[in-house]
Design a protein around this nucleic acid. Sequence first.
DNA 1: AAATGATTTAACCATTTGGTTAATTTTTAA
DNA 2: TTAAAAATTAACCAAATGGTTAAATCATTT
Lengths: 200, 200
Amino acid sequence: MTTEEKIIKAAEEVFIEHGYDGARMQEIADRAEINKAMLHYYFRSKEMLFEKIFEEKVKVVFPTISEQMKSYEGFTDKVCFFIEQYYDILIKYPFMPFFIISTINRKDDKHFIKKLPFGFMKEIFFESFFSDLQSGKIREVNPFQFAVSVMGMSIFPFLSRPAMKELIGINDEQFQLLMQQRIDELKNYVKLILTPTNHA
Amino acid sequence: MTTEEKIIKAAEEVFIEHGYDGARMQEIADRAEINKAMLHYYFRSKEMLFEKIFEEKVKVVFPTISEQMKSYEGFTDKVCFFIEQYYDILIKYPFMPFFIISTINRKDDKHFIKKLPFGFMKEIFFESFFSDLQSGKIREVNPFQFAVSVMGMSIFPFLSRPAMKELIGINDEQFQLLMQQRIDELKNYVKLILTPTNHA
DNA sequence: AAATGATTTAACCATTTGGTTAATTTTTAA
DNA sequence: TTAAAAATTAACCAAATGGTTAAATCATTT
């Protein structure tokens, strides 16, 4: 493991645990077991180190499910597939949502927002939506509000994870299980919302 | 306006904007237009000042909708009413969700979580759920997962607000309008999920 | 008006923090 | 083998930060 890799690994941990303001360069150095000056030698400043981590992590959380989504015909199936794939990632990196959310909420610094690759959604999501809507395969909902809802249902438990764990008294393992079970529940909700009522 | 009130008002702003770690005592003092020493004179420490603000704000975000909810008969109506009332608060205090979420995600300090008054949900929410489930008025969903979903759908747009504003290019006013419209959409989703399929 | 207690201020302090530097060790290349 | 380049370290620095203090001002009571 190179010094640079050790730094990145440690920085990931510390930034994700404490956020930008709460993170300390010394703590990153300690965890990487290197001299603090090395941080600046490799990444110049805290800001630039953070940028590096953020960009890398964004790539993980906004993966290229897009391509695979194309192979699903209907809009409903696409959304269900998205939830499934997305939960694989979320369960593996449960801290990621808070890291992203806390970063984009940083005052006076919306330049991080522009790094979010939201293009993939527009393309496949909306196109497929209007196509299925016209052919009557799905109910007429507001596509934007629906998309935000799916995202919200999916991500929220990971943002409120500390509260959930404390309130219902579960550990990481049990939380993970609960989220695993959640996949089918969410897919069911999506189908119930999107499946048109039978006016026969 | 007393000095104490000026401090609280300023502290609210600064803590909500920057979070605990990002907040500066000097900035709070400046905004309150008082000497920094006054902060400690009235609240001893940053930690205690934050505690005060947090407790006060929690009371706003977790209001006593409970009582009014009792007057609604069915579970579905209760949930819809909850969304309605909750959005009144969220639209008025759009920063609150991030403030709460970022606080409960603070490392090594889960004592804030215990201040969240979640009792109100259990009482009315779950009781009414099982009652309606037995009488076949609602579909059999997982009540816990459903509750988290409703919370998630409701709160998430306020957490991703900066991203939403940037991505679809809207201002505060337009965001507010979008959230106003969202109420009916969410109520609709809830009904679609909960209304049992007709097996006639 | 004088004494008392509460409030406010300016100056100060110790610690922490991100960042730098100059010297040293390790690696690479000639 | 040795000189140059890269990597690493310890010591250091200036600025920022939460917090303190002692003096000053203001309000209240007698």
